[in-house]
Design a protein around this nucleic acid. Structure first.
Lengths: 238, 238
DNA sequence: CAGTATCCGATGCGATACTG
DNA sequence: CAGTATCGCATCGGATACTG
């Protein structure tokens, strides 16, 4: 219970660090900054975090006043929601994300975990575009993904967008083929879409109005517009 | 050596957190953001951190490329300096400081440690003002500080400003008397100077031009201008 | 689905002692 | 002053099992 010892300083940076700089905490907050989520939805964003630790962190954060627990009610699912103080952490998370995107050397030795996180991120970033028909289906093929995990369908139906991992049926409008690493790099803004088309790292087929800039409806990382510093100046994890 | 396990995500927030969210790390960076410092100068800013851990952190941060070690040379002291990537963390530290100042409930149960940090902070914030004579001496009396630690002199002599803990001799220009907690609160912007004068929490004596706004030459926390949220909305450590 | 309880090994970190 | 080396305990956190 007691938590780690205090830094013994009144400095607000120190106090903030006491609350925020614990393992997984920033990532839990990152997840919740988009709005309330249920326990297992949070877990999807922090796949390697154990249930018990997530549970403990949520209690800590609630006690500190950073979030509150929403209990289930008719027509409402249980979940967690940041308080105003919690939402006020957006600039902190943004600053960390911005810095990381600009300075950290990517090391995409993709395992299943990054893959799961990519899909989860993608799920949050997809969006309709005006020229899209009521019903729109995309087949996404990760050519190097393990066994049953290589095929995914994005199903845009009215306001609902789902990512399915088995064929939902219906006619496919756009086909995409790509390796996981390359897709991630493009999605993060670390590799350009056009050059990836040129060297065939990404193959896309379908009506031209959708294939010429697929990231309009796929979305991209919010940080994709921030360029990386020259390799020599970058920072590397451990 | 191995460090904690990776979060297994390519998200820049996660990567940044891996590098930054370790115990003491943000505070070491905070210290260095003002410019290069020697080993023991850094220690003065993180009094409760053990030497061995500071040493280890500095190695980690150097290996990651956040700072570099400056070896001693004729006319130059050994020390540590942030790299460009390290200095680029300023917005992160500022965001954390801003958030902390705005949202965290202060709990000033002052022990020696906070006291030491206050003095160290003060040392960095004092500055000359134009109307100050070449030589200017301030006697600072913390009425509730332990035994030999209650008296301090700020000695402004030309460009040099020193904080002495024993009487440097010479005529005192300004006298200040205050309890440590109250002084901290005023310095942090949590309590107003004028109201503190009124209720005698702070007593200051000397020429009017220096006593009417002493924080011009004492300096204040950089975060002092940021107001605290209403008590009910604030966040508390653990 | 949405958690909690318990166990126990890994590691983080402070204390102490030592070195150039 | 500017660190490094070693030791041992505290706690952190993942695995597993269990509950409403």
């Amino acid at each position: 219970m007691a938590g780690q010892k205090s830094y013994g300083q009144f400095c607000p940076v120190a106090k903030s660090a006491e609350l925020l700089c614990k393992r997984w905490t920033m990532l839990v907050i990152r997840e919740l900054l988009d709005g309330p989520l249920g326990f297992n939805d949070i877990r999807s964003g922090v796949l390697l975090m154990s249930r018990s630790l997530l549970s403990a962190r949520l209690v800590e954060l609630e006690q500190s006043g950073l979030l509150r627990h929403i209990s289930a009610a008719p027509g409402r699912r249980a979940g967690y929601e940041l308080t105003e103080a919690g939402y006020a952490l957006l600039p902190v998370v943004e600053a960390m994300g911005h810095w990381g995107q600009e300075w950290i050397e990517p090391d995409l030795t993709v395992g299943d975990i990054d893959f799961g996180y990519l899909l989860w991120s993608l799920r949050r970033s997809v969006r309709r575009v005006p020229e899209m028909p009521e019903s729109f289906l995309v087949r996404l093929h990760f050519t190097d993904a393990p066994d049953g995990h290589d095929l995914h369908w994005l199903s845009y139906r009215g306001p609902d967008i789902d990512i399915c991992h088995s064929d939902p049926g219906g006619e496919v409008d756009v086909w995409i083929e790509c390796e996981v690493v390359a897709f991630t790099e493009i999605w993060m803004g670390w590799r350009s879409f056009s050059s990836s088309l040129r060297d065939q790292r990404l193959v896309i087929d379908g009506p031209r109005q959708f294939t010429q800039d697929p990231f309009r409806w796929l979305g991209r990382s919010r940080l994709a517009a921030i360029g990386k510093r020259p390799r020599a100046e970058r920072v590397k994890p451990v």
